[in-house]
């Protein structure tokens, strides 16, 4: 069983090494992510963000603009995740025993 686990980790690593053959080199400015239009002619999001973040939201920090405006719904999801963590800890660990003890 243990060897099976090690083998699957090895297969996973080999798979990722195989994936490297298609990846663009580190910092390659000609990669598709860094172009202005994609292969089918739609705009590439990141270049649009760099060019228009200041015009659209008056904010120099592009990450804030992406986080707060272009992809704000992801940020709402992130908020919900952290809220979920809080209420889950409350659900799992809180016993609400103190009030009962006071009543007795």
């Amino acid at each position: 069983m243990k060897y099976l686990t090690f083998m699957s980790i090895g297969v996973f690593a080999l798979l990722l090494i195989y994936a490297a053959y298609g990846l663009p080199y580190r910092g390659d400015p000609n990669a598709l992510v860094n172009q202005e239009i994609s292969l089918t002619g739609t705009p590439v999001a990141s270049s649009y963000y760099i060019e228009n973040a200041m015009k659209d939201a008056n904010t120099p920090n592009m990450v804030t603009t992406v986080l707060g405006d272009y992809r704000a719904f992801d940020t709402l999801g992130e908020e919900v995740v952290i809220f979920a963590a809080g209420i889950i800890c409350f659900l799992l660990l809180n016993r609400e025993r103190k009030r009962e003890a006071r009543k007795q």
Binding site: D56, A57, N58, T59, T64, T65, G68, D69, A72, T75, E79, I82, F83, A85, G86, C89, F90, L92, L93, N94
Partner: peptide, 27 residues
Amino acid sequence: RFYGILLIEVGVGLAVMTILVAIYDNL
């Protein structure tokens, strides 16, 4: 848009602060 982002950042800050403290308390 600038002030909209600011408003939601305040909401995020409030939520993160209280929830992290609540996780600590409940643990």
